[in-house]
Design a protein around this nucleic acid. Structure first.
Lengths: 228, 228
DNA sequence: CCAAAAGTGTTGGGAATACACCCATGC
DNA sequence: GCATGGGTGTATTCCCAACACTTTTGG
């Protein structure tokens, strides 16, 4: 397992994000051994023979996360500077993965969810990778249906708004969120409603995402002629 | 050089783009040997010991392109499927590089510029990588100053418009282009003008990009409160 | 009946495209 | 003078945040 310094060893590390109790959280584990003992690290690990990076990322996630496949996985960046890891030359491809609020993680003492916007002290360059993941997610919330991977299959608009708020970090109007996403054809009403909460209030209509795979709804088209 | 199938070999391939005579072009070389003989391929090659992927991409570009450093380089994606290359397991990180119209490429019979939107038949998965590069560039034209890497340091607005048109594939109004980019603080007048062309016409004012490094001018901020 | 939550109708501001018109040069 | 290319000023459109108001529940 010790990387040599003449041939690169390849690993896949994943920023796994979810929104739970209105907070953007990421899954981290605390290192026991040097280097960087006690610091927190992204889940990940080495590539096996004949395995793709995506498969490796998912395999190492499964070792941490008990539940089934994550709802979305995409590449972020590949870091290859030879000095990244003091133990030897390690090339790492970082991934962004998204999970629904109901994922269950395996019971391991060293692994838990932490606030992604105020994480504990991270090992190596993992703080940068986390930041990169958050920015990627924020961007895609604005021009794609990526939020499908952060909510349950049927949801109330107010829940979706809470997800947007938790990720973007500012208040979002449920009214306008609904109209924009409906107009772009990203969400649709299921026809069902949920019972009202304890404190009363009108029962919310339940919506679903039309597509459960990443779809770009607003391709950038600056300086384009009007589409009328 | 023959990759083994138990340990991955790593390479860096680059989609190098420029705009010349109002056409988006990419640098390709024609393979002589099997596999995929006679097909065209992106410039690139293997990673050396202790070298970063970015350094490898630039080094292999220099072997093809005589001129100095390219104006912009960024990562696109890392492809790791074990079956990508019939000769063995080859992990490839693809890059997008941009060059100004005055780059000179080394005189090599097998290497030349080709229309990026209608390329010749490409080897392996290089057609996908080229497409990815074009889409990335189109997106960034809309929300960043990335065009700085495709024009000379001083340029007329109409030249800049031609670059936008060549990349985006539709007509762009020079009037609006100027106003939007000036308003975003991306370009500024140099104060100089160029002599009029042969057929007359008012001499154009010359502009420059304020920054010569990638700057995001329009961060996506959907559903955000008004910034007034 | 009142509070709480959800949803609809409507308004208004701002930004980008479109268009009309003026400017400066070559021949 | 007139064609050609460059630049400015103004109009129009359209999107979306903002806000007022209605709907539906619990207690």
């Amino acid at each position: 397992m010790q990387p040599s310094s003449t041939t690169p060893t390849h690993s896949a590390d994943t920023v796994l994000l979810r929104v739970a109790s209105n907070t953007l959280e990421t899954l981290l584990w605390q290192r026991r051994d040097e280097p960087q003992a006690l610091r927190f690290a992204l889940p990940g690990g080495l590539l096996e023979r004949g395995e793709s990076l995506e498969a490796a990322a998912l395999r190492h996630l499964v070792a941490k996360v008990g539940a089934g496949p994550v709802a979305h996985l995409e590449q972020l960046e590949t870091r290859s500077e030879p000095e990244r890891d003091p133990r030897g030359w390690l090339i790492t491809t970082a991934f962004l993965a998204l999970a629904r609020p109901d994922v269950q993680v395996a019971e391991r003492a060293d692994t838990a969810w932490y606030p992604a916007l105020e994480p504990p002290q991270l090992a190596f360059d993992h703080a940068e990778l986390l930041q990169l993941a958050i920015e990627r997610l924020r961007g895609k919330l604005s021009y794609s249906n990526i939020a499908f991977a952060l909510v349950l299959p049927a949801f109330a608009i107010s829940e979706l708004r809470n997800v947007y708020q938790a990720v973007l970090g500012y208040e979002v109007s449920a009214t306008n969120l609904q109209r924009v996403l409906e107009r772009d054809g990203l969400i649709e009403a299921t026809g069902e409603r949920r019972a009202a909460g304890r404190r009363g209030g009108r029962p919310p209509e339940l919506y679903r995402f039309v597509d459960e795979r990443l779809t770009i709804s607003r391709p950038y088209a600056a300086f384009a002629p009007r589409r009328s």
